[in-house]
Design a protein around this nucleic acid. Structure first.
Length: 563
RNA sequence: CGGAACGUAGCGCAGCCCGGUAGCGCACUUGCUUGGGGUGCAAGGGGUCGCGGGUUCAAAUCCCGCCGUUCCGACCA
């Protein structure tokens, strides 16, 4: 492509709305433009890169026996009502004029097809996939394409006879995903994850570490343990019981609100200060007891309560339920369910609020003084805590979720009646799996991992073009002639090349633009080299330059493209 | 959903407090110039100041409402 004819609107200045490097670069290098919050137009350069990622995905999905579909984005309301997902908050965008929704994922449509046509064990297994636009009612799109209302997703679905067969389909996907992200040149890792709104029995996420990622992940500094914060646990020791059997005592604690203030006031370690938090689960009060400054992990809490709506009690409800304000609430005499974090299970000698403002109760024995209705792992892991597998310290970081693989089981088979007849003629539910990749996130993650102060540094796998030929001075007939010749020979040799043949654009401007666009190699045709019938090849990543005889250029480029 | 900021030319911004002819840089057009790291000079084109209402002789500027965009939060009992 000739830059003089190309629509590649680069800009010197960083757009105000972009706050993270990948977003800024995607705008500045002319890869895309924002239409409205969370919705982007991909311009030719950005789309070329997306297509590269898509081609890799397609190859690897086909390699595991995947069959490609194109399913409709417009779905009837009724299908989503059947699976109970129509009214999940912040999930589905709907069409006002008709009873239609814009599909946020495609378990429902896959289920509709499978229910209609999968009849026998002979029809299984199946791996079905598509690469298509998805729509989600994100309350707050952010970070460029990392969280949008419209995005491109590779979604696949497996249909199997048994759970053992599902394990195989799942393993195939894990392998395909690793191949895809490796081929895209991403430095990724895999974590155990929560299956959330998808339902199901197990899942893993493919992550790229980034301070701008929305997920928090926990990884062992020594072994291979890695988990999303939503499900991560550590080997912190339970408090157990201490010797004292003293009875409870109510003590005045004026103006003491936080755990740290209480610890200072009582001159005690924070661990035996039981923090009480009140939630409303399906509008019924649940008190959660945590040790000291341990934080309640919302995902774990939701799982422990068996799903459903869980929200923090507001100050009015707190006062009504306990007779006290936040900071003075405790479990003794609480009218409602009380659950405790594992760390506190069966402990005594605890201090908590007295459910009376400015008073706390000491010597609480959870076995003797409180009706505890279950103990669960409810706390969020903290940096440096010991790994459950090897005991070495855990490290916490942020990450971008590239892909997620789920063992769904029979949730959708049950809701949509997807059954097959086995060899004995018995009707059995199809065992499903579901697997997703965010295509834009591949691009954004690569840009986060590969840029410098001058712009993008594309790797060969995702680069929109492999080389950019720069004709430094368009007034010099010889340069124009040779640059054109080099461009044509490269193109004929199958090299994807961009030619900067823009008139009256200064050399400096062309260099800056080439660095911003970030193609892996730049071929500089200028007067310096022309004198000796040479051109210069610059490697974008390292800045390293070599002079090459003009008649050897195609050969040399083909050679370095392999490196 | 809670909090905050912003909305003026394609992009980045000033002007608003203190009402009185709408500006700067980049980009764009034309001419000359320059030609290895965003050349220089000159002349131009481009804006219902987000939308609606109000106050006023007069509103980009003050007041009210709406829309849009962005950021922070939605854990500390």
């Amino acid at each position: 492509m000739r830059l003089s004819r190309a629509f590649i609107p680069t800009q010197k200045e960083t757009p105000a709305e972009a706050t993270i490097p990948s977003h800024q670069l995607m705008i500045r290098a002319g890869l895309m433009r924002q239409l409205t919050a969370g919705v982007y137009a991909y311009l030719p350069l950005g789309w070329r890169s997306m297509l590269k990622a898509v081609a890799i995905i397609r190859e690897e999905m086909n390699a595991i026996g995947g069959q490609e579909f194109l399913l409709p984005a417009l779905n009837p309301d009724s299908l989503w009502i059947q699976t109970g997902r129509r009214n999940i908050p912040n999930f589905i965008l709907s069409i006002k004029e008709r009873d239609l929704v814009l599909a946020p994922t495609h378990e429902e449509v896959i289920g509709w097809l499978a229910a209609m046509h999968i009849q026998s064990y002979k029809d299984l297994p199946q791996i079905w996939y598509q690469i298509q636009t998805k729509f989600r009612n994100e309350p707050r799109p952010r970070s460029g394409v990392l969280r949008g209302r419209q995005f491109t997703m590779k979604d696949s679905y497996t249909l199997d006879r048994t759970w053992e067969d599902l394990d195989k389909s799942y393993a195939l996907h894990a392998e395909a995903y690793a191949n895809i992200f490796r081929r895209c040149g991403l430095d990724f890792f895999i974590v155990g994850a929560s299956s959330g709104a998808m339902g199901g029995t197990g899942s893993q996420e493919f992550m790229v570490e980034s301070e701008f990622g929305e997920d928090t992940v926990v990884r062992c500094t020594s072994c291979d343990y890695a988990a999303n914060m939503e499900v991560a646990s550590s080997n912190v020791q339970p408090l157990g019981r201490i010797g004292s059997q003293e009875t409870m005592k109510e003590i005045p604690t004026p103006n003491v609100r936080t755990i740290d203030e209480l610890a200072a006031f009582l001159k005690m370690d924070t661990l035996r200060l039981a923090k009480s938090r009140v939630y409303l689960h399906e509008d019924k009060p649940v008190m959660v007891l945590m040790s000291g400054n341990d934080q309640v992990n919302d995902s774990k809490l939701s799982a422990a309560l068996g799903g459903g709506d869980v929200k923090s009690a507001d100050p009015e409800s707190l006062l009504r339920l306990t007779g006290a304000d936040a900071g003075s609430i405790g479990p003794v005499g609480f009218r409602g369910r009380v659950i405790v974090d594992r760390r506190l299970e069966g402990s005594n000698g605890l201090v908590s609020g007295a459910s009376r403002n400015d008073f706390h109760t000491t010597n609480i024995d959870l076995k003797r003084d409180v009706k505890v209705d279950g103990s669960f792992d409810l706390r969020s892991v903290e940096e440096g805590e010991p790994c459950t597998k090897c005991g070495k310290p855990l490290r916490i970081s942020h990450a971008i979720e590239l892909g997620h693989i789920f063992k769904l089981g029979t949730k959708y088979s049950d809701a949509l009646n997807i059954h097959y007849l086995d060899e004995q003629g018995a009707s059995k539910p199809v065992i499903m799996g579901s697997y997703g990749i965010g295509v834009e996130r591949i691009i954004a993650s690569h840009l986060e991992q590969s840029h410098d102060e001058n712009g993008i540094i594309w790797n060969m796998a995702l680069a929109p073009y492999q080389v950019q030929v720069i004709a430094l001075n368009m007034n010099n007939k010889e340069i124009v002639l040779h640059a054109n010749k080099i461009y044509r020979s490269l193109t004929e040799a199958g090299v994807e090349a961009l030619l900067d043949d823009r008139d009256s654009v200064s050399p400096g401007f062309k260099f800056k633009d080439a660095d911003l666009l970030g193609m892996p190699f730049q071929i500089i045709v200028g007067e310096k080299g022309m004198k000796n019938n040479q051109v210069e090849i610059k490697r974008r990543r390292t800045g390293e330059r070599v002079m090459v005889a003009e008649d050897k250029i195609v050969e040399e480029v083909k050679r370095i493209l392999q490196t």
